[in-house]
Computed example of a mutant assay.
Amino acid sequence: MKKGVLLVNLGSPDSPTPKDVKPYLDEFLMDERVIDVNPVLRNIIVRGIILNTRPKKSAKAYAKIWWEEGSPLIVLSERFMAKVNKDIDIPIALGMRYGSMSIKNALQELKDQDVDEVLLIPLYPHYAMSSYETVVVKAMEVQEEHFPEMHLTTLPAFYSNEDYIKVLSKSISEGLQGFDYDHILFSYHGIPERHIRKSDPTKFHCKLDAKCCTTNSVAHHTCYRHQCYDTTELVKKELGLEEGKVSTSFQSRLGSDPWLQPFTDKEFERLAKEGKKRLVVITPAFVSDCLETLEEIAMEGKEEFIEAGGEEFRHVPCLNDRDDWAKLMSNWINEWQANETLPV
C-alpha cells in the first residue's frame, strides 16, 4: 500500500465578503456536531435567524485580518504543509472541514498519486466533537462514499504529547521575551457544556465541577475541558510559570445555552479591575492564527482589556508555520510511515 498524509484544518470563506461568508457559515453552523440540536430547529436557528445578520458582521471581522495572499488560516496552513513536506518522502495534501478546500478534493489529490493508506491529521491539539471529531467523521464519510479503496488512520489528539508541549512552551517563552507581564491567560475556544457530557463515554464522570477534570478517568480521552486545563498545567510546569500569574478561560460562545467558563471577555475585565496592567494571552486551541485569535483576541480582546483599565496587552502567536512545529509533525509522519507508530 502507498502511504500519504491528509492535514485538515477548520477552513475559511473564499473572501471577506458577505457573499462568500454566508455559504461558509451555513456549512459550519449546519454541522450537527457544532449546533447539536434537532435538525428542524437547527435549520430555523441557522438559516432563519443567524444567516440573516451574521454574514455581514463576520465579513467585516474577516476584512480586518485578511492578508494580501488570502485567509491567514489558509495561508499559514499551506506554509506549514510546505515545510512538513520538505522532511517527508510520501505525498501530503491539505483539506479544510468547511469551505471550498474540501476534504474530498484533498483525498482526490492523494488518490491521483496512487495513495491508498492515509494518515489523517486533524490540526486540533484537543478532542472536541465540534472540531476534532467532526473532521474525523467527515473524512470517514467521504472516504467510504468516494474512496472505498483507501484506508484511514487518525492521529490522536496531541495536547499532552511531551514533544508538542516543548514546542508550544518554546513559542510561548519567545513570546514572553521583553514583556514584564502581570498575568498570563490561556484562552481556549469555548464549547457548550452539553458537548462535554455528550463526549463522556462513561455517561457519569463529567460533572463540570472542580473535581472531575482532575480525577483520573477514561472520560479524559474525549473531554475537551480536561485537555485544555491539562495543556495549561503542562506548559506552566515546563516553563516554571508562577502559580498565581496563570489562568485558563474560554472564548467565542454562541447562543444562550451554558458554555464552558470562565469566559475570556469577562476575564479581561476582571483581571484589569484587579489591577493587572500587563496581560499576555495564549490561544493553544488553535495551531494556526485565524479570526478567533487575530480579531477576537489580538484586536477586540486588547480593546476590552484596555477599556477595563489595563495598560499593555500581548497576544502570543499560534504555532503557525514555526520550523520546530513543522519538524515535529514531519517526525510523527515519518514514525508512522516507518513502523505505524503514532505519538501518545
Rank of each mutant, 00 (worst) to 15 (best):
residue 1 M to D: 14
residue 8 V to L: 12
residue 13 P to Y: 07
residue 17 T to S: 15
residue 21 V to E: 01
residue 21 V to K: 05
residue 23 P to I: 00
residue 23 P to H: 00
residue 25 L to K: 06
residue 31 D to E: 09
residue 32 E to C: 04
residue 37 V to T: 13
residue 38 N to M: 03
residue 42 R to Q: 10
residue 46 V to P: 06
residue 51 L to W: 01
residue 53 T to I: 13
residue 53 T to W: 09
residue 54 R to S: 02
residue 54 R to F: 05
residue 61 A to Y: 00
residue 77 S to V: 03
residue 80 F to I: 08
residue 81 M to K: 09
residue 82 A to G: 04
residue 85 N to T: 08
residue 87 D to Y: 13
residue 87 D to E: 15
residue 88 I to V: 14
residue 89 D to W: 12
residue 95 G to D: 03
residue 96 M to D: 00
residue 97 R to H: 08
residue 98 Y to V: 13
residue 99 G to R: 02
residue 101 M to Y: 13
residue 101 M to Q: 14
residue 105 N to D: 11
residue 109 E to Y: 05
residue 111 K to A: 15
residue 115 V to L: 03
residue 118 V to H: 11
residue 118 V to F: 08
residue 125 P to A: 09
residue 129 M to G: 07
residue 130 S to R: 08
residue 131 S to A: 15
residue 135 V to H: 10
residue 135 V to K: 12
residue 137 V to S: 13
residue 139 A to W: 04
residue 142 V to N: 07
residue 146 H to V: 08
residue 148 P to Y: 14
residue 151 H to T: 14
residue 154 T to C: 14
residue 155 L to R: 06
residue 155 L to W: 11
residue 155 L to D: 07
residue 156 P to D: 01
residue 158 F to K: 01
residue 159 Y to G: 03
residue 164 Y to E: 06
residue 169 S to Q: 07
residue 170 K to I: 02
residue 170 K to T: 08
residue 176 L to C: 04
residue 177 Q to M: 06
residue 181 Y to E: 07
residue 181 Y to L: 01
residue 184 I to W: 05
residue 185 L to W: 01
residue 185 L to K: 01
residue 190 G to L: 06
residue 191 I to P: 11
residue 192 P to N: 09
residue 197 R to K: 12
residue 206 C to D: 14
residue 207 K to A: 11
residue 208 L to S: 05
residue 208 L to V: 10
residue 209 D to R: 13
residue 211 K to F: 00
residue 213 C to Y: 15
residue 213 C to L: 12
residue 214 T to W: 15
residue 214 T to F: 15
residue 215 T to P: 00
residue 220 H to M: 08
residue 221 H to L: 01
residue 230 D to F: 04
residue 236 K to P: 12
residue 238 E to I: 04
residue 247 S to D: 14
residue 247 S to H: 02
residue 248 T to G: 03
residue 250 F to H: 07
residue 251 Q to D: 04
residue 252 S to Q: 02
residue 254 L to S: 07
residue 258 P to W: 14
residue 258 P to A: 07
residue 260 L to H: 01
residue 263 F to N: 00
residue 264 T to G: 04
residue 266 K to H: 10
residue 268 F to M: 01
residue 269 E to C: 02
residue 275 G to T: 05
residue 277 K to W: 11
residue 278 R to W: 13
residue 280 V to A: 03
residue 286 F to C: 02
residue 292 E to Q: 06
residue 303 E to M: 15
residue 304 E to W: 03
residue 307 E to D: 14
residue 315 H to W: 13
residue 322 R to F: 13
residue 328 L to H: 10
residue 331 N to P: 04
residue 333 I to P: 10
residue 334 N to S: 14
residue 337 Q to E: 05
residue 340 E to P: 11
residue 343 P to I: 00
residue 344 V to K: 15
